[in-house]
Design a binder for these strands. Structure first.
Lengths: 349, 349
DNA sequence: ATGAAAGCGCTAACAC
DNA sequence: GTGTTAGCGCTTTCAT
């Protein structure tokens, strides 16, 4: 059981709208009109008086009261599976900026790759009546019940499953915004093949029984298209730690691939470390193509070539999907193209 | 000017406490008593009826209403200067977990190293009547006016200036929690000296006119204590990019130090990249001691030796300082010791 | 153009 | 043990 917070009633009582009204010699309603710029017009003289009283008293509207009256908290929420991952942190920043432009405060939360935490956060946000939620879920089929009950719109952000992006999730089908993982994977592999590689491995997250990640499909497709046979697949968690283990496994193999496509920049960081420790020269002994385009990919050694996700587009698209949902049931998915960033780890430069 | 959000009144009206009361055949107050576990006792039979109604209707209390009645939002806020920096992301996670244990929701915001954004966020949080704020400010003297006016307690988290930590900020002196930057710097330098280095440079953030960072003081102290003369000081932003530039500067020098103390892991990442590109062998040609203990420091090449900040202690200490402030004016600062993590970049292993 | 007043959903003091 | 009710501070309709 969780201890309840100890509400500290504020000693110095806050300045309320009525105080302002009194001081300005007008009615409380007028103060609202001035502060909100509507819905009724106010004479210039009155407005000036009010503004002055506001400033003199240091009045700031109580947003709990506003939320209660309005039925809207003017807050959007976002849940990411790992806020320490610079990619998600960057994505969150992009979304926050987009939201701020529209006057919304973004509540950022970190499910820490835990289903239980994700559930707790969703319940919490539902209770707080956020106006919408961006969800990068841990799960292929996240539990959206609480949100549906509270009638809170959701946008699935960057969901790895192609299935979901194409179908929709939950009863009424959530909106989804993502990037074309499959094409991104394909392009990366195609590029590696262009460097002359014929045996290309894959470092992937999750484990075999979960649904197919589109990046894996793209990897396979790129290889098949070139008439080659797929290299080894190594499944490790989407962490630096996981990537490190993948690197060790790669080193231990007898028939080592000459290149790998790694499905996240974090894994790549760990992988590079392991490969260096194994004495490999990079990219000569092993070329690496990464995925995400997180800021950390720019200053690794060697610098990572990576499939960059267009964060701004993603953020704008997600906000748009949340605020102006398309009526049709099928139109609710947006997929943006990924873009290759060519640096040293693949053999360029 | 910022566009106002378009409040979307929810089509499906939410289930309220009165609905539950009606359904359970009790009074609204009793529903509160059950849901909140008080303040008045309720018979077991009634409680069962209420719980059932709650479940049947899918009732969740409206926290805006609760906040209004209570005068407390049960939210704490935290502002970090750069949420993409894994160190701050880790710190935020530690704080979030500590807050969740006590029943608070943490609102995490990212000032993106911008004074204007920091101000906007503070105003926003003040308006939302958060119950407290953790602030890792961009500034040496952050503007706490709005918070004082709203009577919201603040804890300065990890403020770089020793001055502030010792003195207190703002009118009534904010609480501050941090780690002993000076001693951390001294220990790092001492360790490098133990490896035989006699010419040790410093990569520091900010520029000369800002107040002295305690890490710099510690670096100097360590060098002086050993009877050596300080190596070059390079001032670049606290970013990977900045570290990269520092590395380039180091490469360009004629009398290059044999070791550097770098004041953040992010800078170290960039620095390593530049040094590799310059053809240096690490740590043989240049030893590096870093600062922060962020997760990224573990998988760089070579792995970074670093001064780790005790995140859990910091988080617990900050929460404690916020929730149970000490009465005295001088007791409001807590400083935790830093700890060395020895890996390869300093010459160990 | 301005004022009065009815909620928004909840908490908790007060009555029974 | 349970019901009644007066706010919490704001938005907005309706009257003036």
């Amino acid at each position: 059981m969780v201890a309840m917070p100890h509400p500290t009633p504020h000693a110095r009582p806050a300045v309320t709208r009525d105080d302002v009204a009194r001081r300005a010699g007008v009615s409380p309603a007028v103060v609202s009109y001035v502060v909100n710029g509507g819905p009724r017009p106010v004479s210039a003289a009155t407005e000036a008086k009010v503004r002055q009283a506001v400033k003199a008293l240091g009045y700031r509207p109580n947003s709990a009261a506003r939320a209660l009256a309005l039925g809207s908290s003017e807050m959007l929420a976002m849940i990411v599976p790992d806020a320490i991952n610079p990619f998600y942190a960057s994505l969150a920043r992009a979304v926050e900026n987009a939201a701020a432009e529209r006057g919304f405060t973004l509540l950022l939360a970190d499910s820490q790759d835990s289903l239980r935490t994700e559930r707790r956060l969703i319940k919490n946000f539902a209770a707080r009546r956020v106006d919408g939620l961006f969800l990068s879920s841990v799960l292929f089929e996240p539990d959206l019940m609480d949100l549906e009950q509270a009638d809170i719109p959701v946008v699935l952000l960057n969901h790895p499953a192609d299935v979901v992006l194409k179908g929709g999730v939950g009863g009424r089908g959530a909106n989804a915004v993502g990037v074309d993982f499959q094409e991104g994977g394909r392009l990366a592999v195609e590029h590696l093949i262009g460097h002359g590689h014929e045996r290309i491995g894959l470092v992937m997250g999750g484990n075999a029984d979960s649904e197919l990640d589109a990046r894996e499909v793209g990897w396979q497709q790129g290889i098949r298209d070139a008439g080659l046979t797929p290299g080894p697949i190594i499944r490790v968690p989407f962490t630096r730690q996981g990537g490190y283990r993948a690197g060790q496994e790669l080193l231990a193999r007898t028939e080592r691939p000459t290149a790998v496509f790694v499905c996240s920049d974090q894994q790549s960081a760990g992988l590079l470390c392991a490969l260096h420790e194994g004495g490999l020269r990079l990219p000569e002994d092993m070329a690496v193509f990464s995925f995400d385009g997180a800021p950390e990919s720019e200053y690794t050694w060697p610098r990572l070539s990576t499939v960059a996700q267009p964060l701004k587009d993603l953020a704008q698209g997600a906000l748009d999907a949340l605020l102006n949902p398309k009526p049709g049931p099928e139109n609710n998915t947006k997929i943006f193209p990924a873009e290759l960033i060519l640096r040293a780890s693949c053999g360029c430069h």
